[in-house]
Design a protein around this nucleic acid. Structure first.
Lengths: 342, 342
DNA sequence: ATGAAAGCGCTAACAG
DNA sequence: CTGTTAGCGCTTTCAT
């Protein structure tokens, strides 16, 4: 490794003190002669000097880094959200730091502590909710936002979508089509409010339209749990038109080929719908009815809230947001997969 | 913002010097009494102290941060690659820093410089190739790896897949099925070797099997360029069985609905295939013939190479890798979309 | 218009 | 076993 060029080197080459170079770096040109300014500029370019952000951060207590902690960075939700968040943060000079927890609370804790040590300026997390004590303490030091998760933690803002209403709306739509039964496929709740509320939305729709709920819980790590769903659908659809509504896009992706293989006519014998809007929902035939979550809006909103709080220093301490929830509406996307003609 | 607790505070509360605390932090327990160790440990937990990584980095010159600079973080290739890279880096205590260039050279340059200032320990880039001067200079200071891009820059390792061979193989497969013509759809080359080599693979296959090449170049930002493709397919497929082979998965995703809408029988009247393996390739009917790039392997390999170089300090200067290319083989995935029965 | 000097929080000789 | 001291690269009063 060659020695990295420092402010010292620049000062020496330009024949000025490091203070003056520092002034130049911070664009305080008013207190500097044209000549000096030009000289420093030239030296910096010539030496390829870049101020050490670590040293700057150590002094100024701002690193221009924002951390996003998600469950799985390849989930469509996370991908879309991070991209949009990054797009609003980036122009303001903030860098995004991405980590994934894989849903492991200990791992999440370790990541958060590491991020804290890294002195990021803010954190955005899709948390599991088991480290709220730690996060509450951190929320005193910097802006913290929960995304896609709802937990009451003082000082933390939650950015979520209207899972319950959207799910109820979708379930109602399917039931109104005339399917005799609608199977709801979900995963173990595990304290994740999205799963709970989507299920609840389905249940409410059933209750409202006087249908008997039909729910199967699967585990994405266990293939045989999906076999049960396929079997249930096979038995059910041969008697009467039924529909399958999955609680998230990954479940439908996993289930889709198996369900198609059963050979039922979609949508006349078997209706299909899912929460989330997979990128392939418009590619299959018939297109898939689904609920599109506004990940772009969520990312942008989160980014803007962050920027605003970051712009007014010490706001965190002086006006600690007690607790706050921003709910953004999802969109029902009607596809051919539930268009049952009675 | 409340004052953040520092090593000073810990030392004071524990009644020892900061040196001793520092020793504790660096696990040099041998030179420390049981009592002291226990006391420090308790104080740290009580105060919720986290060593300031900035200060540590400023001193030790290692930040445990690795940067990944990609064109678009929502592209399937990038998503898969980053995830796998992160999974190999993370256990070693490295954090991943993600940025996107949107293919803009100036933006890429700005990002790289900022990353350099941030003192990341290494960089992985899907570069556009316009900043190779800067990157060559950086490669002297830290490990730099190009992914999915091939440029000769001293000290930089390239991790790529066998685009040419895989493309030729796929094109040959399609032609051998008996399609009378195969339309290759690509984007402006713009110095991106993957586009160039995939096209070349197609051309070689045509030459080898004595077919006349048929290529249309589209622009994903201009819808009308796709209209031309659709029109060409419509005119062609009504006369004889033809196939469409797109140079990447995004193009096929964009084109697919339009092509299906034409109403030709797939694969008997119209064959379909693409480079890349979209997650939906197995969901559509018939399933899509494609080329799967081993993004996981690429990410893991990249991560391992990085870790190895990072583990031996000053290796960079003493044994500057002159130039190096790692090529990983892709897999041809035969689907029903090109199964033409003559 | 410019510089000297005091840290920011931490590590690492070098003494005890 | 533990403390003293000198920086790492930069910003920021306070002088001049």
């Amino acid at each position: 490794m060659d020695k990295r060029v420092t402010i010292q080197d620049v000062a020496r080459h330009a024949g000025v003190s490091i203070t003056t170079v520092s002034r130049f770096l911070n664009e305080r040109y008013d207190s500097m002669s044209e000549a000096t300014r030009g000289r420093i500029e030239a030296v910096i370019k010539h030496l390829g000097y870049r101020p050490n952000a670590l040293a700057q951060g150590l002094k100024g207590n701002r690193t221009k880094m924002v951390a996003a902690v998600v469950v799985n960075m390849s989930y469509p939700f996370c991908v879309g959200f991070m991209k949009s968040l990054n797009q609003t943060l980036s122009p303001a000079g903030y860098h995004l730091f991405v980590s994934e927890t894989a849903g492991n609370p200990d791992r999440e804790r370790a990541i958060v502590q590491s991020l804290q040590a890294q002195r990021v300026d803010a954190m955005v997390l899709q948390t599991g909710g088991q480290n709220n004590d730690l996060l509450a303490a951190i929320a005193i030091q910097m802006p913290v936002i929960f995304v896609d998760r709802k937990y009451v933690v003082p000082g933390v803002t939650n950015v979520i979508t209207n899972n319950l209403e959207a799910s109820e709306q979708l379930a109602e739509h399917i039931l109104e089509q005339g399917y005799r039964r609608v199977l709801y496929v979900t995963e173990q709740e595990d304290g994740v409010h999205t799963r709970k509320e989507r299920l609840q939305g389905y249940l409410q729709a059933c209750h409202k339209l006087s249908f008997k709920p039909w729910v199967i819980t699967v585990d994405r790590d266990q293939d045989d749990t999906f076999d049960l769903v396929v079997k249930a659908v096979e038995d059910g659809a041969k008697k009467e038109p039924i529909a399958v509504y999955t609680g998230n896009g990954l479940l439908m992706m996993r289930l889709y080929p198996d369900l198609i293989r059963l050979g039922f006519q979609i949508p006349s014998q078997l209706g299909l719908a899912t929460f989330d809007q997979p990128d392939w929902s418009g590619l299959v035939q018939p297109s898939l009815t689904c609920v599109g979550q506004p990940v772009d809006t969520m990312g942008a909103l989160t980014g803007e809230m962050l920027l605003q709080r970051l712009s007014k220093p010490d706001e965190t301490a002086s006006a600690p947001v007690p607790f706050d929830v921003k709910t953004i509406a999802s969109t029902l996307v009607l596809g051919g997969s539930t268009r049952l003609h009675r």
